[in-house]
Design a protein around this nucleic acid. Structure first.
Length: 315
DNA sequence: GCCAGTCAAGTCCCG
DNA sequence: CGGGACTTGACTGGC
């Protein structure tokens, strides 16, 4: 079984290279419109350059899974601003996409917690706009449907069944190109693995298993019990999952600096036993790329696991 | 150059 | 129903 490990957004090993520089609406309003617009576009370009640099770093370190920042282009979806990212950054996006394909890196994006498809009309409208923005970036990179955009089921609003039904009812608002990329992740408080899986099966979208969220918010079945069904939702695309470790027993939901390989290893062994040929593991840890490489190093010490590259292993 | 406060988003809990 | 917590990294302003 091939295991590819990745990290989120920023490479700490690179000096002063954030892909998430901001330009807030408050500041936007304080300047003449033309100047403010130019500034927003410039910040976006800087973030894309930082992203390109991180991808160089990933290729050099054998890291073939990466979640891009969701704050690449500030204010791109703000109703009063709106930046056509595919047009404005056509050259930059094409170059990044070409590099991603050449180096066989799988990229994903994860709109923030405020992007939900089951809220009120205004919330859903903003969420769809946000998904279109994320999709436009990946489209501009010329990436296929293996590169995913991940969100959560959404709010509960006092009645989970009704709230999930709202998601189903709203799903027609999500365009076909976005559906090719959209995954749903179980969360640490509201929607369990089984509830998320059921929604994914109903909608025909892949399920992103977050194993730490499952520990925080378990259901009657274990992730390994549900693995055949979860795996099936991915179709032709390799299955992807999230892992993080609790920072502290008293602060269980928060992410720690690095990943404790033990509990993950137990899950990976179960995956191997069930015949999975490949799994992509996204590390969510404070130490980002350093935690990703450390996990690869730790897993490589385990008997039966071979490190093929920086963050690529064979089990 | 450091530290505290601000910003942005939507939900959920408390009063 | 209004306000604060939650979350996260970047950034601003005071000293």
């Amino acid at each position: 079984m091939l295991i590819r490990i990745g990290f989120v957004s920023i490479a700490l090993a690179i000096f002063q290279n954030t892909p998430s520089s901001t330009f807030t609406y408050k500041l936007f309003q304080q300047r003449p419109r033309d100047e403010a617009m130019a500034r927003a576009i410039e910040v976006g370009r800087k973030n894309l350059q930082a992203t390109q640099r991180i991808l160089y770093y990933n290729a050099a370190h054998g890291i073939r899974l990466y979640r891009m920042s969701s704050s690449l282009v500030p204010l791109a979806t703000h109703p009063d601003v709106i930046i056509d990212v595919k047009e404005v950054y056509a050259k930059e996006l094409a170059a990044i996409g070409e590099f991603i394909r050449k180096e066989d890196i799988r990229v994903t994006m994860h709109p923030n917690q405020f992007t939900l498809l089951n809220g009120n009309d205004k919330v859903v409208e903003a969420a769809v706009r946000d998904l279109e923005y994320h999709n436009a970036l990946m489209d501009g990179m010329g990436l296929d449907g293996m590169h995913k955009i991940n969100i959560h089921i959404g709010g509960v609003y006092g009645d989970k069944e009704k709230a999930v039904q709202k998601l189903y009812d709203n799903f027609h608002l999500v365009s076909e190109p976005i559906r090719k990329r959209l995954t749903f992740e179980n969360d640490d408080k509201a929607y369990t693995t089984l509830e998320t899986l059921t929604a994914c099966e109903t909608l025909g979208q892949p399920m992103m298993l977050d194993i730490h969220h499952d520990w925080c918010n378990p259901c009657d079945s274990t992730p390994l019990d549900l693995l055949p069904r979860i795996h099936a939702t991915w179709g032709d695309a390799p299955m992807k999952m999230h892992v993080s470790s609790p920072r502290d027993p008293s602060d269980f939901r928060a992410h720690s600096d690095y990943i404790d390989p033990e509990r993950l290893l137990e899950f990976l062994r179960g995956c191997k036993k069930q015949g999975l040929e490949r799994i992509d593991v996204m590390v969510e840890a404070k130490q980002k790329d350093l935690a990703c490489l450390k996990l690869a190093e730790d897993l490589a010490k385990v008997r039966g696991i071979k490190r093929l590259d920086g963050a690529v292993l064979e089990m």
